[in-house]
């Protein structure tokens, strides 16, 4: 029951945070020079027409007034309209968000098994052959620019071998898996090493702790100690890092989305910033924020389950 209360409380606390996020975004966008209507109407667009449209869209109103209008609509569940497309921001997000969410979840799902496997393999015999090989490959994966690797993957696995599509999202679940495989793989390459290194360090830390050594000397099975004590305790700091990485993945998805022409949120956001499509940036940031907060909540809940010190 207390867990449920905790969740409710956290969700309640999310409201002021979202408000804060919206204020920061609004201020940032308002401070950004550049006229969305000029960018929209094109180089040769008539100055009078631009002024007319600006007035119609209320872009010349005082910033504070614009924000309150926005807030008023937001409270009523209206994210506003895109300046570029004259379509509801909610519609645009509804189209692009599932793509990125799919990509991030797909990446995470692909990432977890190798992370656990490689970390345990590494930590079992520190400085052993496996550890060294994993470290070297990990370092390589970490240091290669994603956009470069992604391009090479697209050229090799996509154009050359024809194994995977190099663009798009597809229509069905299996097509999504197929289309987003290379993007997810390209992202994995740098996520896996980060998590492996942290989990490995945590595992080694934990194994050297007194209670583990004591347990081992008392004749408890190595495997059992590892499974019941070492591993759960080591996962905690990595889990925290994991939440941060998911946030990074959401925002950083723009790189692979660009290389693989995936119509996701990263693409939408960057294009909207470049086009000064204020309300899309606003809405997308709020959705990102909400997602990340839910991930954080999930991670925190998971932490209480794993770490006896927090529940105790």
């Amino acid at each position: 029951m207390s867990t449920l209360k905790y969740i409710c409380w956290r969700l309640l606390m999310a409201l002021p945070v979202l408000l804060g996020v919206s204020v920061v975004t609004f201020v940032l966008m308002a401070a950004t020079p550049g006229d969305p209507i000029r960018l929209l109407a094109g180089a040769r667009a008539d100055a009078d027409m631009i002024a007319l449209v600006r007035e119609r869209y209320g872009l010349d109103e005082p910033i504070l007034k614009q924000y309150f209008i926005y807030l008023k609509n937001l409270v009523q569940g209206d994210l506003g309209n895109s300046l570029r497309y004259r379509q509801p921001v909610a519609d645009l997000i509804a189209r692009h968000y599932p793509v990125t969410l799919f990509l991030v979840i797909y990446t995470v799902v692909l990432t977890l098994p190798p992370v656990v496997f490689l970390s345990v393999l590494s930590a079992r015999k520190p400085n052993g052959v496996a550890d060294q090989v994993i470290r070297v490959i990990g370092v390589l994966g970490l240091a290669v620019p994603v956009f470069w690797l992604a391009l090479l993957f697209a050229r090799f696995f996509g154009a050359q071998l024809g194994w995977f599509p190099v663009s798009g999202y597809g229509e069905t679940f299996s097509e999504h898996m197929w289309h987003l495989f290379l993007p997810a793989l390209s992202t994995m390459i740098w996520v896996v090493p980060i998590l492996v290194r942290n989990l490995r360090a945590a595992l080694l830390d934990e194994m050297n702790r007194d209670y583990v050594q004591a347990g081992l000397s008392k004749g408890l099975g190595r495997k059992q100690v590892f499974r019941t004590h070492v591993f759960p305790n080591s996962v905690l700091p990595t889990l925290n890092l994991f939440a941060v990485i998911v946030a990074y993945l959401l925002g950083g998805s723009v790189i692979v989305e660009t290389v693989y022409a995936v119509p996701g949120m990263g693409n939408l956001m960057v294009d909207s910033i470049l086009a000064r499509d204020y309300f899309v940036v606003q809405g997308a940031t709020l959705v990102f924020a909400l997602t990340t907060m839910l991930v954080m909540l999930a991670v925190d809940l998971l932490s209480t389950v794993i770490d006896p010190r927090i529940t105790a």
Binding site: V17, V24, V244, A247, G251, G252, V254, I273, F288, M296
Partner: peptide, 16 residues
């Protein structure tokens, strides 16, 4: 932290 984390990294950098 909650306010900062959700900001998509690149978006913020690009905006700044």
């Amino acid at each position: 932290l909650d306010i900062t984390v959700p900001f998509p990294f690149f978006v913020l950098v690009l905006a700044i």
